[in-house]
């Protein structure tokens, strides 16, 4: 269980990263915290020709707050964000969801942007991005662009990032999730979610997002709902997610959790 051979570049500037990506395209992989990619390399699921290590780039290692918008660079580790003193004030949903990401020993290395790039349907960070309406900052050698969360995740482990693009940062809008709730059900503590749910109060009502069920996290915006109207909305959403069976849970179980946890969370944020 050893990786296939690859070249390794320890990038000393972002330009080097972009140059490498533009030359090698799909044969290159950006190595950040490595908590997903390295396991895939060891299992030989992934066999890139080139790894570009971005973790020595100080310019990518920044958490910035501007008028409430929080921008997290590609090199920011999950543990670093969790330890950021402004997190609970600016992005309470992230503060609640982050402790569910893996374990202490993986959060210490894994990055926020790496988790988004990996786009595991059960992962917490993509769910939070969808729930909060964040943006992914992409950059190649020629241009920068921002992609909204809903446009970024295309399918299981598939994103809108082009092969020559680096995820430079991710940003979460100001005041998003001021009133929020998060709950996750997994087989064991720290496992990938069977169902993870986030609810965020919006100006018109509530946004409710679910991870772990469909191929990408999904969100619905609802007005202030309660009673049977809420139950109907949740029921419809549960079915739309097209849940399926695997060794850890059945589709029905996942739909049940969406309905039950959804009701609790929506009520909690609408109180």
């Amino acid at each position: 269980m050893k990786p296939a051979a690859f070249d390794y570049v320890r990038a000393e500037s972002v330009n080097e990263v972009l140059e490498g990506l533009s030359k090698e395209g799909g044969n290159a992989r950006v190595l950040a915290g490595g908590q997903s990619l390295m396991a895939m390399l060891n299992m030989r699921l992934a066999k890139p020709r080139l790894l570009i290590d971005i973790m020595r780039l100080k310019e990518l290692n920044r958490i910035e707050e501007q008028a409430g918008v929080v921008t997290i660079g590609a090199g920011v580790r999950q543990a670093a964000l969790l330890a950021w003193p402004e997190l609970a004030r600016t992005q309470p949903l992230l503060a609640r969801a982050l402790p569910w990401v893996g374990h202490v020993q993986t959060r210490s290395r894994g990055t926020i942007c790496g988790s988004l790039a990996h786009a595991d349907p059960s992962a917490e960070m993509p769910l939070a991005l969808i729930a909060l309406g964040g943006e992914v900052h992409l950059r190649n050698a020629r241009r920068r662009r921002r992609v909204a969360a809903t446009e970024f995740f295309l399918g299981m482990m598939a994103t809108a990032r082009a092969e020559d693009e680096l995820i430079e940062a991710v940003s979460f809008p100001a005041r998003a999730g001021e009133r929020c709730a998060f709950r996750e059900v997994a087989r064991r503590h720290g496992d990938f979610a069977i169902v993870a749910c986030a609810a965020v109060a919006t100006s018109k009502g509530v946004r409710f997002a679910v991870g772990g069920v469909a191929d990408v996290p999904q969100a619905r915006d609802w007005p202030r709902l309660d009673g049977s109207a809420l139950d109907d909305a949740l029921n419809g959403f549960a079915y739309e997610l097209d849940a399926r069976d695997d060794v850890h849970a059945t589709a029905r179980y996942r739909r049940d959790l969406v309905r039950i946890i959804g009701r609790d969370l929506v009520r909690e944020v609408l109180q």
Partner: peptide, 29 residues
């Protein structure tokens, strides 16, 4: 396990807990 789950290989790099099986030797340079 060499896939980052069992924790037997955990070391500390620059003050960070690290699964050494999910880390390249070159990264520790």
């Amino acid at each position: 396990c060499e896939h980052g789950v069992c924790g037997a290989c955990t070391v500390i790099i620059d003050g960070m807990l690290t699964r050494s099986c999910l880390t390249l030797a070159a990264q520790a340079d």
